[in-house]
């Protein structure tokens, strides 16, 4: 395989080729191939410990792949350092399972910190943009609150606004509703639905099968560090070809 032809616009947003990741003797990713088209939503499903989160963390280089290659908008970022690392972190936004809001900063400061310190945007401009984003996630009235005074669902929506404030080209969602009380899941998924509708490229690791079926353009089922099966959601959910996929879906869709 060769690197994709130049011409960033035509290159897929994210492309992985034979990505491996080991933690000591634990072989978490065993050769992942994947392409994420611009404006598409890819949902990654699979049992706990299958490597879903690690895959996501390899894309924005929180973890370094031990083998294979990763491209972002046609640029090989596998061994990114300094300048290129900044390029990656500014293009790729991430939302975490545990929110990871900065507890010592207000909602507004959480959202403006990176634009001001990293992008060197003027404070007023960053604040204006933050207000806009917080309105979009339905939290305009919480702008001066501190994270500890917000519900989990509100915190997660702030986290989404915080990531969006960097104007990323692709957003990674790492089981963002798994730490939420059931009644708070919907408000976060609604924000993500809207984001998808607005054309954001998204890679979503999730246990919310309903969301995956409804929003995803492409579903990848991972087990044991390999993509067992991938395709349009109708195919993967309605007519899974692989035994392992059938068993997994049987287990999670039954209840």
């Amino acid at each position: 395989m060769t690197a994709p032809a130049s011409g960033e616009a035509r290159a897929p947003m994210v492309r992985l080729e034979g990505v491996h990741k080991r933690f000591g003797s634990l072989h978490v990713l065993r050769g992942i191939d994947m392409e994420v088209e611009r404006g598409s939503v890819v949902c990654v499903i699979g049992p706990s410990g299958s490597g879903k989160s690690t895959l996501l963390r390899c894309v924005n280089l929180l973890e370094r792949a031990d083998g294979g290659r990763i491209w972002l908008e046609g640029q090989d970022i596998t061994h990114a350092r300094r300048e290129q690392l900044r390029f990656v972190h500014q293009r790729v936004g991430m939302v975490f399972q545990q929110f990871n809001l900065f507890p010592h900063k207000s909602v507004l400061e959480n959202v403006t910190l990176a634009p001001v310190t990293v992008l060197k945007r003027p404070r007023e401009e960053a604040a204006r943009r933050a207000e806009e984003l917080l309105t979009r996630v339905g939290l305009a009235d919480k702008i001066h609150e501190y994270p500890e005074r917000l519900s989990g669902g509100q915190q997660q929506r702030v986290a989404i606004a915080r990531a969006l404030a960097m104007d990323p080209h692709v957003m990674l969602f790492d089981e963002v509703t798994s730490a939420l009380d059931p009644e708070l899941v919907k408000e976060v998924l609604d924000v993500m639905r809207r984001l998808a509708r607005d054309g954001m490229t998204m890679i979503v690791v999730t246990h919310e099968m309903g969301f995956a079926r409804e929003v995803a353009d492409h579903v990848a089922f991972i087990d044991g560090g390999v993509i067992v099966e991938q395709g349009p959601p109708e195919e993967v959910f309605e007519n899974p070809r692989e035994e392992r996929t059938k068993r997994f879906l049987g287990l999670v869709l039954e209840h």
């Binding site: 924005n60 900044r86 972190h89 991430m94 975490f96 990871n100 910190l113 990176a114 915080r162």
Partner: peptide, 15 residues
Amino acid sequence: VPHGQREAARSLGMS
């Protein structure tokens, strides 16, 4: 300080 704080900062491109 929880590790997630570093990851959040890093994923936002902070040095």
